[in-house]
Simulated assay, not measured.
Amino acid sequence: MITASIVTFHTKHDELARLIECVRRSSIDHLYIIDNSSNDELREFIKSHESAHYIHSLNLGYGSGHNIAIRKSIEIGADYHVVLNPDIYWDGDVIGELTKYMDRNPDVGQVMPKIIYPSGETQYLCKLLPTPIDLIGRRFMPIRSYRKKHDYNYELHWTNYDKIMEVPLLSGCFMFLRVSVLEKVGGFDDRYFMYAEDFDLCRRIGEISKTVFYPFVSVTHVYEKGSYKNKKLLKYHIQSIIKYFNKWGWFFDTKRGARNKKCIQTIKLL
């Protein structure tokens, strides 16, 4: 059984309908829409989509919203759970292909397909575990040449994104997760309101199983980069980054160095 969840916040109807249609055409059995909006205006809209379960929730954050659905997926004994951003969509049997891969590889706790822009260009969302320079310096560094060189290594551009590879950090825009592993790690950390909760969850999953990039199917991500345009979202982003490093270590993080080194060495042998 496969479940999925979308956390909405005054999400556009057409954007949500597009994603729900992708889910409807897939092998996902139950879709939970956790609405963090200030009203339940989406309730009537979602009623027309039989496969979707609508839950209006107090807005405690992005990860907390998905945790509502994750707990339900555990309760009903689902095998896999898919965390979806509202601005995701795809063609073809992406869910079926990822399910087959996970079925064949029980040591994998999370898999991410290739993520592309609407133009078809690859989004570089495979990353090493971040240092403060990766998340803070990269965000505010005005020198474009520095950021380009930095991203080439941090986002693993040199791998060409054309092979299956174990990566320590996968994006939260599309997370295909093994429910038994989610149950062990406890889902998202509720202390993150928005941003970095996917870094934290992926890192915890990677401590007990593999986190894998699978490039042979793709999904499209509109990718608005809200914190680059909105000061309130930027504030949430900075607060979450601080929480992440307070939890895992700022400059002294031996696990980070070991996992990043292993990742690079393993990929070079592929």
Score class of each variant (00 low, 15 high):
residue 91 D to E: 14
residue 247 K to C: 03
residue 118 P to E: 12
residue 143 I to S: 11
residue 152 Y to V: 03
residue 177 L to Q: 11
residue 157 H to K: 00
residue 133 I to C: 02
residue 23 V to E: 09
residue 259 R to V: 03
residue 243 K to Q: 13
residue 173 C to M: 11
residue 104 R to D: 10
residue 201 L to D: 02
residue 106 P to Y: 00
residue 146 Y to G: 02
residue 129 L to H: 08
residue 219 V to C: 10
residue 157 H to S: 00
residue 163 K to C: 12
residue 217 V to D: 05
residue 17 A to P: 05
residue 174 F to S: 06
residue 17 A to N: 10
residue 142 P to H: 11
residue 206 G to I: 01
residue 35 D to N: 06
residue 134 D to F: 05
residue 140 F to E: 06
residue 20 I to N: 07
residue 82 V to Q: 03
residue 147 R to G: 00
residue 82 V to D: 04
residue 187 G to A: 13
residue 15 E to R: 08
residue 221 H to V: 13
residue 254 T to P: 06
residue 150 H to P: 01
residue 205 I to N: 10
residue 119 S to A: 06
residue 234 L to H: 01
residue 260 N to C: 09
residue 142 P to E: 12
residue 156 L to Q: 00
residue 166 E to D: 13
residue 86 P to M: 13
residue 236 Y to F: 15
residue 11 T to C: 12
residue 93 D to H: 07
residue 70 I to C: 07
residue 54 Y to H: 08
residue 35 D to C: 07
residue 61 G to V: 03
residue 191 R to Y: 04
residue 164 I to S: 00
residue 148 K to H: 12
residue 238 I to Q: 02
residue 65 G to S: 07
residue 215 P to F: 00
residue 117 Y to I: 06
residue 214 Y to P: 06
residue 25 R to H: 12
residue 265 Q to I: 12
residue 97 E to R: 14
residue 131 T to V: 02
residue 10 H to F: 07
residue 32 Y to G: 01
residue 238 I to H: 02
residue 262 K to I: 07
residue 203 R to H: 09
residue 154 Y to V: 11
residue 22 C to H: 08
residue 268 K to R: 15
residue 55 I to L: 14
residue 225 K to Y: 07
residue 133 I to P: 00
residue 108 V to I: 15
residue 195 Y to R: 02
residue 31 L to R: 09
residue 239 Q to A: 13
residue 119 S to D: 14
residue 57 S to Q: 15
residue 167 V to P: 00
residue 72 K to Q: 09
residue 12 K to F: 06
residue 270 L to F: 12
residue 264 I to V: 15
residue 177 L to I: 05
residue 180 S to C: 09
residue 113 P to Y: 11
residue 267 I to Q: 11
